[in-house]
Design a protein around this nucleic acid. Structure first.
Lengths: 92, 92
DNA sequence: CAGGTATTTAGACAAATATCTAAATACCTA
DNA sequence: TAGGTATTTAGATATTTGTCTAAATACCTG
């Protein structure tokens, strides 16, 4: 849980997640979307991987990152406990 | 969004939220649950308030903090966009 | 008003974080 | 095997963050 919130607590990393929501991308493609040195992006990707929010797969000289969708449920479940005993919350 | 994730990115603050889930508590009552100086707790409460996750209300010499449940929905909605196009997600 | 309790503000400091540049590693291809 | 591309690792640095103690503020009550 700690690693999860830590990973989510950065605008760049959240933007990376939003990019990967569309499709898997290589580290280079991801870096191209930001005005930030590649090693910095690499570090962000590392934190996202540590939190298991993304997976990486080596393909030749490229490393492709993709979203690990199931992990988000963990955060969502934690957050759900705080919602009021109000209406509209059948399943999740 | 930034303030939200920032506020959530700390175990003490998350524990405070879990405490307040039960019932509103004064700053002192909250502090009593942690082995940490009161000013530190006060600072955590400040960050939670900045993120609008809690509200505070002064009652005499006490300040009572309570959960601001609606704000959690904002985070939940943001997270929901990352879940797979899988089953089981009627409402939220 | 004086003293006590509840809480915050201020200021200091160590640890964690985000970023950079330079160098290392790994792979591909001529 | 040499050179090029993709990515990470290492090391440095400035900023942010969590914590503390001391002091300020606000309220209550004898």
């Amino acid at each position: 849980m700690n690693a999860l919130f830590k990973a989510l607590n950065d605008p760049t990393r959240r933007a990376i997640l939003e990019l990967l929501r569309e499709q898997p991308l290589t580290a280079g493609e991801i870096a191209a979307h930001f005005s930030m040195a590649k090693p910095s992006i690499s570090h962000h990707l590392d934190l996202l991987r540590q939190a298991d929010l993304v997976s990486s797969r080596k393909q030749g000289q490229f490393i492709t990152y993709s979203l690990n969708m199931t992990v988000f449920d963990e955060v969502i479940s934690w957050l759900l406990q705080f919602r009021g005993p109000d209406a509209n919350s059948s399943s999740v």
